[in-house]
Write a protein that binds this DNA or RNA. Structure first.
Lengths: 116, 116
DNA sequence: CTAATGCGTAAGTGATAACTTACGCATTGT
DNA sequence: ACAATGCGTAAGTTATCACTTACGCATTAG
C-alpha cells in the first residue's frame, strides 16, 4: 500500500467520493458503515477512502477490529486557501473591469448573453 | 454548443484547466492568448474554457473579433461555500474527538488505547 | 468581393477513472 | 485451535477524459 501524494482537487471531482468525505466529516466511521449508506460496494468505498487518504483529506486509525476514518482539517484548509486565491484574483479582475469602464475606445457591442 | 450544466468540482479536477481558470481570473483574455502561455493547443484551451463555462466559473463576451473570457465570482463563491460546509463539519468532528479522548495526538498511525 | 484572423467543434486516440466480483490477510470471540 | 468479522487489494470491464489534427463558420480589413 503505497501512499502516493495525490491532487486533492481530483479527489473531490467524483460525487461518490465527495459523499464519502461528507460522511467522514460528519463523524468518525468505518468502511462498512459508509458502504451501508451509499449505493456502491464496500471495496468501492475502500478505494475512495484510499484516494482521500492520499490527498490528505482524511486520516485513519485502527480501533480494535475496525478502521476508523476521520476528517483532516489541514487538508481541507489547503483547498480553502487555494480556492480563496482564485476568488480573490477574480474579485480584483472584477474591480478593475468596473473601473475600466472608462475605456470608450471600442465601438464593440456591449451585449452579453447571460444565464438567469 | 449546448450548455450542459456541469459539476464545478469536476471542472477544477484537471491541472491544465485550473491553469486556464487562474489565467482568466488574473484578467480578461482571449483563447489564443491563453494558449500562448500554456503548453497545449488552442483547441484544447477552447475545450477547457467550455467546461469552465458550463460549470459557471467564467463568462465570455464578444469584443470585436475576439472572445474575451472573464471570471465569474458567483461560481467560485458557490465552491467556497460548499468547501466551507465540509470544513465546518470536519472541525465539529475534530472538536468532538478532542473532547472525547483528551488525547492531543496527531496524524495517522497512532496506537489507541481501548477505553472500555 | 477576397483574404486573413479568431475561434469552436468534429473525429480519433491513448490514458485514466470508477465500478464490480473474487480473494487473502489480520484481528477478535468461543 | 477454528470460525467470524472487517478490511484492503488484485483483476477485469466499461466509460470518460484530455489531447491532437483537420475543418468550417463568423467577423474584419483591403
Amino acid at each position: 500500500m503505497q501512499s502516493v501524494t495525490r491532487d486533492p482537487w481530483q479527489a473531490l471531482a467524483d460525487p461518490t467520493r465527495r459523499a464519502v468525505l461528507a460522511r467522514v466529516a460528519r463523524g468518525p466511521c468505518s468502511v462498512t458503515e459508509i458502504a451501508g449508506e451509499l449505493p456502491v460496494s464496500r471495496p468501492a468505498v475502500s478505494q475512495h477512502l484510499k484516494v482521500l487518504l492520499d490527498a490528505r483529506l482524511i486520516d485513519v486509525r485502527r480501533q480494535g477490529r475496525l478502521q476508523v476514518y476521520r476528517p483532516r482539517a489541514e487538508g481541507l484548509d489547503v483547498l480553502r486557501r487555494e480556492l480563496d486565491t482564485f476568488w480573490r484574483s477574480a474579485l480584483l479582475t472584477f474591480k478593475d473591469l468596473a473601473e475600466a469602464t472608462y475605456d470608450a475606445s471600442s465601438p464593440a457591442n456591449e451585449e452579453i448573453s447571460d444565464d438567469q
